[in-house]
Amino acid sequence: MRYVSLAGLLFAFWLALSGHYTPMLVTAGVVCAVACVFAAIRMRVADPEGHPIELFRGAITYFPWLFWEIAKSGWSVTRVILHPSLPISPTMTVVRASQKTAAGMATYANSITLTPGTMTVGVSGDEFTIHALVRDGAIDLEGGGMDRRVSQFEGAA
């Protein structure tokens, strides 16, 4: 199931990038997609971590939410950058990730890094070391709103 969906996605990616639909090229696309799946199986990356099909359904609502979070925090970082006195208060903190799978934790860590103003600088066990541009960003993360949202996204499967 996972392998079939991976091959299908890779073939769709081929079709989207190619833009030419002659029989020769489409056949080449099928061959390449299947060869890539075999390579992925051999490299042991076609597992729930490398191709998390369980997360696709949750992703439909998660990514719009993440875009909105990025827009909000991006605007606050913009205000800090353009403020004449540059009111930064860099803060480091530790937050706990409540996700169960590696893909969920990676999503949480990458979401933190992707949101301007906060970034994950270290992971040890289920604890993330966070560097935040302003103190409020660190306090928001300690509140755990994003953690709960990512856990919900992970559990939506």
């Binding site: 600088v121 040890s124 660190a138």
Partner: peptide, 30 residues
């Protein structure tokens, strides 16, 4: 960020809350 920490570049902090949140302060996995 990890390469910077590994190289020993310390961030200038206004506040270090790593020991204050109840979580164990640990060395970040490099």
């Amino acid at each position: 960020a990890q390469a910077c920490l590994h190289e020993g570049i310390k961030p200038q902090l206004a506040e270090d809350r790593r020991g204050m949140t109840g979580a164990r302060p640990t060395d970040p996995d490099d």
